[in-house]
Amino acid sequence: MQQLIRPSRSELRIDVDQSGDSIEAELDLLYGRLKTPGNAMNHCTRLSALRPGLLFHHREADGEHYVYVEDVARRRLAGYTVFNRLIEVDRRTDRYVRSPHSKYATVYQGRGIASAIYDWALGRGFCLVSGARQSEGAHALWRSLARRHPLRWIALRGKRMHDLGSDVAPASAAELDTRMLLLGRGFSVAGLRSRGLLHSCHERADRAGDMSCRSY
């Protein structure tokens, strides 16, 4: 059984600060679009209830997936999560990986909403790659997900994912191309390698004379 990794707080670049006022204004605008006939958001598909008391609306555009969370009783959006394509990977890898980003109003944070949506995406078979930087809330979310989903450290270089192993040294984790990879349903490290999606980091390091791929 593959060991699940719980990354420590010191291992990532946590320097994203999201203003509560700006998020509220954005959510008000999106809620208006969700309720406007003819708007693309008005044609979202409704997902099964991932959390009680909330509606989850899903749409796909250009290969990116958007999940909007509506609080019907309060007539507002609680927030949303978008699963972005990564410009850092090649076309083959792009079929299987997405980078999630979430924004939720303060009152809805810490209620497991984003976690439920990430679980939904992983259950659909997407592998999730963390962003170059994270907010403290996003980092806590990834720590929680790593308790129940296989996690791997990778380096995004040359449009490919290079395996860093199950743990990395703090100096390597601080590099902007170092990310966390959560494996979606049906995927394993061996499976990713056999499909040509996960490459040997040591092989690239030998060619480039770069020793930062060494895992600890």
Rank of each mutant, 00 (worst) to 15 (best):
I113C: 08
L27N: 03
L47G: 04
L27I: 02
R111D: 11
G20I: 06
H101F: 12
G53K: 02
Q18A: 15
Y108F: 12
C44G: 15
Y31S: 07
S102D: 03
K103T: 10
A40N: 07
G79V: 03
R74N: 15
Q18I: 15
L29R: 08
G32L: 01
F83N: 04
G110D: 07
E24H: 06
R111M: 12
T45G: 05
H57E: 06
V69L: 04
G20Q: 10
A40C: 05
R111Y: 10
R33N: 14
F83H: 06
S22E: 14
L34M: 11
D62V: 11
S19A: 14
S22H: 13
A25L: 14
Y68R: 03
P100M: 02
H43N: 11
S115T: 04
L27K: 03
E24C: 02
G79D: 04
T93Y: 11
A49E: 13
H65V: 13
V16I: 12
M41I: 02
R51D: 00
L29W: 04
A116P: 08
C44S: 15
T106P: 08
Q109P: 04
A78F: 12
L55F: 05
N39H: 13
E26P: 14
E88C: 11
Y96E: 08
T45F: 10
L29Q: 09
R74F: 13
G20Y: 06
V72P: 11
R98S: 01
